[in-house]
């Protein structure tokens, strides 16, 4: 692992960390973000943001979703601090505060 990444800015191009996978839940249709031993059920707006993290800048993502840049930045920073999002061509960071897009955690405390 490299050191902590620099802060995300509106020009950053976020992408999902290697260990994180997005999928649609078969039973509920909700979007899940899965990573080692854990998972998050994403709100529709959180899911929409992550599905656009493919090399586009945060500015572009916010524009395409009609969302305030500050909201998108805040959400992605929270995920970046948990090591779930990195910057394109940059190593992701790990761990941090909770994220506003998550509603509940379906897979905590695996033995």
């Amino acid at each position: 692992m490299t050191g902590a990444a620099t802060a995300l800015s509106p020009g950053s191009r976020p992408q999902l960390a290697r260990k994180a996978r997005l999928r649609t839940d078969r039973l509920t249709g909700e979007t899940l973000l899965l990573y080692p031993e854990h998972g998050l059920v994403l709100s529709p707006s959180a899911a929409a943001i992550l599905r656009l993290c493919d090399g586009r800048s945060i500015d572009t993502i916010a524009r395409e979703l009609g969302a305030p840049v500050s909201d998108v930045l805040e959400f992605l920073t929270a995920l970046r601090d948990r090591g779930l999002v990195g910057e394109r061509d940059a190593a992701p960071a790990e761990q941090g505060p909770g994220d506003p897009g998550a509603q509940r955690d379906p897979g905590q405390e695996a033995p």
Binding site: M1, T2, G3, A4, A5, D81, G83, A93, E94, Q95, G96
Partner: peptide, 17 residues
């Protein structure tokens, strides 16, 4: 051990969970 872990967590925040 708990004290060692707490200090390491602080030091490694952003690198290793």
């Amino acid at each position: 051990a708990r004290a060692v872990v707490a200090a390491a967590r602080e030091r490694l925040r952003g690198r290793m969970e």
